[in-house]
Simulated scan of single mutants.
Amino acid sequence: MKIGFWKHSFVSGVALFGVAAGALVGASGVAVAAPPVSTVTATEVAPQSVENLGLTVRQAKAVQHRHREFGYDPGAIDGYLGTSSWKAIQQAFRDQGVYTGPIDGIVGPETIKALQRSSKSHWGYTGAIDGIAGEGTRAAWARYADYCVDLYGY
């Protein structure tokens, strides 16, 4: 019962304070402005997602290195395929003629289809061009990454 009393007293005190503050503002004619609302957009605060599609850090570093060597900017060679790395990969796919989507760094169905198209002619992918990063797609991607590891010694 004492808890109910204190809870009721606290809530009443907070309400009384709010009413008193409002009365003081009204009496003095001075209003207190709320702090400005930030205009940061969702894209500015969204964390950079990483999607290695089953590659190890070592394999992903080699893929990043390979793309940098060919003039694409994957960002840091850190073994984590984030937005910058995928933008570089998408641009390489576009230059190969297997990707027509936006260069946005998002690993969506169109990016996966481009990976599948490229892997069919070079890395032994035999599955459908369906935009799903299944076992066959990931295995072909790993074969490419292993090739890159062999080239650069990662």
Rank of each mutant, 00 (worst) to 15 (best):
Q64N: 05
L24S: 06
E51P: 00
R94V: 07
T126L: 15
A60G: 08
T83Y: 06
C148V: 05
Q96C: 02
V149K: 04
E69K: 13
R66Y: 14
A145P: 10
D104Q: 02
Q48P: 06
V107W: 01
V19D: 01
F70C: 06
I103G: 01
G54F: 15
A76E: 13
A33R: 15
W86V: 04
R143P: 00
M1W: 15
G13S: 13
G124E: 04
V32E: 06
V37R: 15
A92N: 10
V63I: 10
F5T: 09
A31R: 07
V30G: 01
S49W: 07
T41C: 01
G4L: 02
A114D: 01
V40A: 12
T43S: 11
S9N: 10
G75A: 09
K61N: 03
I132T: 11
Y144S: 07
A42Y: 12
A33H: 15
G127R: 06
S12E: 09
P36Y: 05
D73Y: 14
F17Q: 01
G18Y: 00
Q116W: 03
D146V: 04
S9L: 15
Q59R: 06
K7S: 14
G4N: 12
K7P: 02
P109Q: 14
S28A: 15
E135R: 11
G54S: 12
E44N: 05
T41Q: 13
I3F: 11
G18A: 15
R94K: 14
F5W: 12
A140S: 00
W6A: 13
I3Q: 13
P102M: 13
D130A: 00
Y152C: 04
E135A: 09
R117M: 13
V37S: 09
W141R: 03
